[in-house]
């Protein structure tokens, strides 16, 4: 009785720290947001785009840090521009489009790394951007992630039918009067903004996992697009919440734990959902 009380107190211990409360809140919203946009990333087979985009945004973040420019404006412009460009290249389905995207985004990443090496203050800042840092969460990060989460939710709810139509069947959607390229650009902008506001917590290297894992898990649990849109954010947010707590008690990287918790959920569902769930997964040949 006594020891379990101690344990309960211990579980609550990290919440005594402002940095942990802020970090957990941002991670929770970030997990939900990545889960929401991840549905489109997974169903459109764009997981490599999410990966590339996070690397591109890193370049923008580094450049704006070096030039002493506001992170959200500098990396935001860089990210949105590269997001829309990547979307357009991918849409044309030119042979080698994936290679072109790979070259551009990794070059952007390399440029960011070189800039930080040469002009950055310390190794610490590079690590924070690559692997994420809950310690560094500021009030501006909380506001930014909240604004993007509300914006993305409103846009996806109001544009639900058009997003569904242009994701499932872009050709017929276009003929039926849906502005498919506009919907795709809107999606890429939201994806860039999501990466922008969650990158400092989750880190460049692991963010694409948070875009893929919750949505892929949700896909195995349901055959309905509309349900995926709330199951996936729920999985993302719970993974983030659990991951943050496990990381505190095991003294490990928060972003790594968030991804590991998500990956464990994925594994459980994969084996738990049987043949049916795995067959649904079969559609993601590109993961």
């Amino acid at each position: 009785m006594h020891s379990s009380l101690m344990y309960a107190l211990n579980l609550g211990e990290p919440y005594g720290f402002q940095f942990f409360r802020n970090g957990t809140f941002v991670a929770l919203i970030a997990g939900g947001l990545c889960g929401l946009l991840g549905v489109f990333v997974v169903l459109r087979g764009m997981s490599y785009i999410g990966h590339g985009l996070s690397h591109a945004v890193f370049g923008g973040a580094a450049a704006s840090a070096v030039m002493n420019f506001n992170y959200f404006i500098g990396a935001g412009i860089w990210g949105v521009v590269s997001g829309v460009l990547i979307g357009r290249i991918a849409r044309r389905r030119i042979i080698g489009a994936d290679a072109a995207i790979g070259v551009v985004t990794t070059a952007s990443f390399a440029l960011g790394l070189a800039l930080l090496n040469r002009y950055g203050q310390a190794k610490r800042s590079i690590e924070a951007v690559l692997f994420g840092s809950v310690l560094g969460v500021k009030n501006s990060d909380i506001i930014a992630v909240l604004v993007v989460a509300v914006l993305a939710t409103v846009v996806i709810v109001l544009g639900y039918r058009k997003f569904l139509f242009s994701t499932f069947d872009p050709e017929v959607a276009e003929v039926s009067g849906v502005k498919v390229s506009f919907m795709e650009a809107a999606l890429m902008v939201m994806l860039s903004l999501t990466i922008l506001v969650t990158m400092r917590v989750i880190g460049t290297l692991l963010i694409s996992a948070l875009l893929v894992i919750p949505a892929a898990t949700a896909r195995m649990l349901t055959n309905r697009f509309s349900r995926m849109l709330w199951i996936s954010p729920l999985i993302g947010a719970s993974s983030a919440f659990l991951g943050m707590n496990v990381a505190y008690h095991t003294n490990t990287s928060a972003s790594a734990m968030i991804i590991l918790v998500g990956a464990s959920a994925f594994t459980c569902v994969y084996f738990g959902s049987g043949v049916r769930g795995r067959r649904r997964m079969a559609s993601f040949g590109h993961l």
């Binding site: 569904l164 994701t167 499932f168 697009f225 649904r280 559609s283």
Partner: peptide, 9 residues
């Protein structure tokens, strides 16, 4: 494999 029902289509 897309997660939609007949009605949604």
């Amino acid at each position: 494999n897309f997660p939609v029902t007949v009605l949604e289509v």
